[in-house]
Design a protein around this nucleic acid. Structure first.
Lengths: 230, 230
DNA sequence: CGAATAGTGTCTCTTAGACACTATGTC
DNA sequence: GACATAGTGTCTAAGAGACACTATTCG
């Protein structure tokens, strides 16, 4: 280690775009910043990376922010953001993660990062931006990724509870894509996609109308054929 | 800045997956490491980030490694890799970028990072891995991304010179996807995709056979309809 | 001429979307 | 009964792939 530390040193953080579907609308988890910079403003949850993997840091933050130990859902890296001036404290490179989780974790724990709350993404995207740092951009990228994921992967089920109806699954697609889908064509499309969903044999009337069969996730990791939006 | 630097500090690098198509085969730019760690082994080109954007760092490295000032092509972020033990020197988070460039920049300058050379990606993916760090994984991810990009974006043209034939474009797809395509169906598919290519009015016989019309990139940023592989 | 690539036509099969219709629950 | 959602059937138009065929160059 002769020339030790001649290179640039930076702080590394993870920021989270945590999405869920509530009342047929897409929501993101937002925190009120309790400390400078951007004190009092809204931001995405996140924090500094410790002696751990980036993914582990994201998992840790996710559990801290949602206040749950066994969060069910999906977590994947979005991308890194490293503009030299994105943080007034100095050089901070952040690695953003995208989390898709089922509604139940509604009660958000306060944690150290002040109050957290679910906000409709539609509202958050309105200009002018109220989010701290470059979090508006990160949120935008996360929403775009989420929309793409629903086309080719079965991750829409990450927004659902363990057992769900086709109608509930459809409302996930409608919320994320921001468009309505024909229930009948959607129904057949899902059932034709091998391994997407599996019948449990039970049914429910929680959505009103005729009882709907309940399904669980079928286990594939790619939708074949994909479910494409227009 | 009361509690200044209580957080983890890390070095930040960029690594590049630079792809091109030569002789109808996909190649990646590989350097021989002249310094430890992994001295003498093969690796992806890359370097430490300075007082600049991550993208700017990637552009700088790209130009240094290819020895060209105005590299034509495409450059986008792949993702970040931050395992605590990925670099024996300490905590180094790297942000990988994917570059797609046209063949002409064949003469690779030595630069400071020892010799650089084009290697067929097929050969590089063979086990056991000979690439330093986690560059095998990064290369794999880059190739996967490249394949996806060709489906929905016009970036195959980044592999071509300013003017190209449909046949040359097809050989790009075949090289990246590793599968042969029906020339006739491909031809109509490309021409049906609005804004993908534009006729120049000229033609060439450089591919042998009947003279082929020459095209330039049409300017769209999404292929509609997309060009999907089976 | 044959060989090679460019470009067109056409057939078949699959799929996406529109939408009529039936089924089964709650009020 | 009205109303809501679940689930099925069917028609039509567009797209994908297979492949015969024509066009134009070179040697």
């Amino acid at each position: 280690m002769a020339k030790k530390r001649f290179w640039l040193s930076a702080a590394v953080t993870v920021d989270l775009v945590i999405l869920t579907v509530r009342d047929s609308r897409l929501h993101a988890l937002i925190v009120d910043r309790g400390v400078p910079p951007y004190q009092g403003q809204e931001a995405l949850p996140g924090g500094f990376v410790k002696e751990e993997t980036l993914l582990q840091a994201a998992e840790r933050e996710l559990q801290e922010e949602t206040g749950l130990s066994g969060v069910t859902g999906h977590l994947e890296q979005l991308r890194a953001y490293g503009d030299p001036h994105r943080d007034p404290r100095g050089r901070v490179v952040t690695v953003a993660y995208l989390a898709l989780i089922a509604d139940p974790p509604t009660p958000v724990a306060g944690s150290d990062a002040a109050a957290a709350k679910w906000e409709p993404t539609e509202k958050l995207l309105e200009e002018p931006t109220q989010l701290a740092f470059d979090h508006h951009q990160i949120l935008y990228d996360g929403l775009e990724r989420a929309g793409d994921l629903l086309e080719t992967t079965p991750l829409a089920t990450s927004f659902c509870s363990a057992e769900f109806t086709i109608g509930e699954l459809r409302r996930v697609y409608e919320a994320v894509w921001g468009q309505s889908l024909d229930p009948r064509n959607f129904y057949r499309k899902v059932k034709k996609t091998t391994g997407f969903v599996v019948e449990t044999g039970q049914s429910t009337t929680r959505d009103g109308g005729r009882p709907a069969k309940l399904y669980t996730f079928g286990g594939v990791d790619r939708l074949q054929p994909p479910i494409l939006r227009r």
